[in-house]
Design a protein around this nucleic acid. Structure first.
Lengths: 145, 145
DNA sequence: CCATGGATTGATGAATCCATCAATCCATTA
DNA sequence: TAATGGATTGATGGATTCATCAATCCATGG
């Protein structure tokens, strides 16, 4: 059911994004995407992420269920690779989009720094929390009707 | 903070995917992507989704915070559009990936249907639940060492 | 067969996200 | 300014997801 057909496309898509919506999973995919034609043993992933085996394995299971990676057992140990090259594509496009977003919001910060408050490092310090969205600045812009 | 720089890339990426990880939000983005150069009034989104205004607005707020859409107020009503064309790119690539996944899992279903159980419509009926991942079939494949 | 190392699975409290309802805001018109 | 329609915001249970720990599986070597 992790990627079922016979459901509206937007549901399946959202579901795919849900599979990608965790830093550790993205990290793992990035590592795997770095060597698209080689297998990466779990040991290497453990080292790359610094995680506890069990924790990593949980997320690997998620990635497997979503059919984003495939696993192969060679004797005692297991290796992973991306299930499809398009997974790497997706990461690249996401990165490109983020480039745009960050660049644009940076411009905005500069613009609004010209007038109000402290023009220097205030913004930098303000943008410090570790959870989610971009710093606010009133979203809905006006336009003449 | 919804798309902060100065954090590891994989965190920011995962965060982006989190913003996309909901069927309604994907649906809205798809609608907006259908007319990239025109604004879409909230009324149209309401109709396209069949949602209650408040509910839709919640998700629009999320999309705004993630900088995926922009809103403009024209007199009494508000219209939305994609903030960057790359958002549409991302949806397209996701769709391409899903195409691969579904096609491949379909092949697998056919293969394994050749031998066990009922070879006909059993698989189709089995893939019915409405929540998440693809139907299971043992993940870790073996290989010679 | 038992022990060991490598990896996965299961279970549980904590944290996060979501849908719904009430309240508010904003611009237009009377 | 009072009232109305369009849209957003806030608050609150209910549902998902996550991190951690213990238990299990699986293949190899003694």
């Amino acid at each position: 059911m992790f990627t079922d057909a016979s459901r509206p496309l937007y549901e399946v898509k959202a579901n795919l994004f849900k599979g990608l919506a965790h830093p550790l999973r993205v990290r793992v995919l990035e590592v795997l995407a770095a060597t698209p034609d080689a297998e990466t043993p779990v040991a290497a992933l453990l080292e790359a992420t610094g995680l506890e085996a069990s924790h990593l394995s949980q997320h690997l299971a998620v990635l497997r269920n979503y059919r984003l990676v495939t696993a192969e057992r060679r004797g005692n140990q297991v290796s992973y690779r991306l299930a499809y090259p398009q997974v790497a594509d997706l990461l690249r496009v996401a990165r490109a989009l983020l480039g745009e977003i960050l660049q644009a919001t940076e411009r905005q910060l500069v613009e609004q720094a010209g007038l109000p408050d402290i023009p220097t490092q205030a913004a930098a310090r303000a943008t410090d929390a570790s959870a989610a969205p971009v710093a606010e600045a009133s979203t809905v812009t006006a336009a003449r009707s």
